[in-house]
């Protein structure tokens, strides 16, 4: 019969129309901004800097101004100036810190390469996307005050990744402490060694990352240890 294809098609449309009144799989509109969809944990937008302590964001930034993210950023949207002095980091080691850390988010393409190459877990991806501004130059240049967010915030937006990072950093710090203690004990047990004869049983370099001038081991990067970022399953796809 001529038109049977058309009628079959219209039956499909009718099924969808009727279904949209009672079946959430047929009616998929969310009335944003009154109703917001839940974003998956892995969702990334622009980067932010992690500081350990919410009370002193600038003083406890994990960033040591090594400038690796600046070099690796494909559109070159990060601008870093190192400080002239050093401050103790979370493990007590004296490190440089970024006096200036700007990200131009009108250029940033959210590729996440800065996060992948950072050896210090200092820069992570944020999830805020409601950041429209009327002026396209100055408000889209985020400085370190606007970029710094505390570790507690990191736990809020990326719980599994933050937990894994914290576990790894505490393990590293513990290992460093124990090595330092063992070295100190060895040193104390040999007080009769004449000064300057043999080099003192030098404390082995701590495993926490040292001077930023040395390029850290390129093998130590996120994402290549199997269980990187397990995410919550996506919304039910009926």
């Amino acid at each position: 019969m001529l038109g049977s294809g058309l009628i079959k098609g219209l039956a499909v449309t009718a099924k969808n129309l009727a279904g949209s009144f009672h079946d959430p799989a047929r009616f998929v509109t969310t009335e944003y901004p009154e109703v917001k969809t839940k974003l998956p944990e892995n969702y990334r937008n622009f980067p932010f800097l992690v500081s350990e302590n919410a009370d002193d964001p600038m003083g406890t930034l994990r960033c040591v101004a090594c400038q690796i993210c600046e070099k690796e950023c494909p559109p070159q949207c990060i601008y870093i100036e190192k400080s002239k002095d050093k401050k103790p980091d979370a493990a007590g080691k004296m490190q440089l810190y970024p006096a200036v850390f700007d990200i131009d988010i009108s250029v940033c393409m959210s590729c996440q390469i800065c996060v992948e190459v950072c050896p210090f877990d200092a820069i992570k991806m944020d999830q805020v996307f409601e950041i429209a501004t009327p002026d396209r130059f100055q408000p889209l240049l985020l400085d370190r005050n606007q970029l710094a967010k505390p570790n507690s915030y990191f736990h809020e937006v990326h719980p599994t990744e933050a937990a894994e990072v914290d576990a790894r950093l505490t393990a590293e710090r513990k290992a460093a402490e124990e090595k330092a203690k063992a070295a100190a004990a060895a040193k104390a047990a040999a007080p009769a060694k004449p000064a300057g004869a043999a080099p003192a049983p030098a404390a082995p370099p701590s495993t926490t990352p040292t001077k930023p001038a040395q390029a850290p081991d390129p093998g130590s990067r996120r994402g290549d240890e199997g269980s990187a970022e397990p995410s919550k399953p996506p919304p039910p796809a009926a």
């Binding site: 601008y79 100036e81 200036v100 850390f101 700007d102 240049l141 985020l142 400085d143 370190r144 005050n145």
Partner: peptide, 12 residues
């Protein structure tokens, strides 16, 4: 002056 200090407090 594209430094951080100049835009302190100016949230996007």
């Amino acid at each position: 002056a594209a430094t951080g200090e100049a835009t302190e407090g100016a949230k996007p």
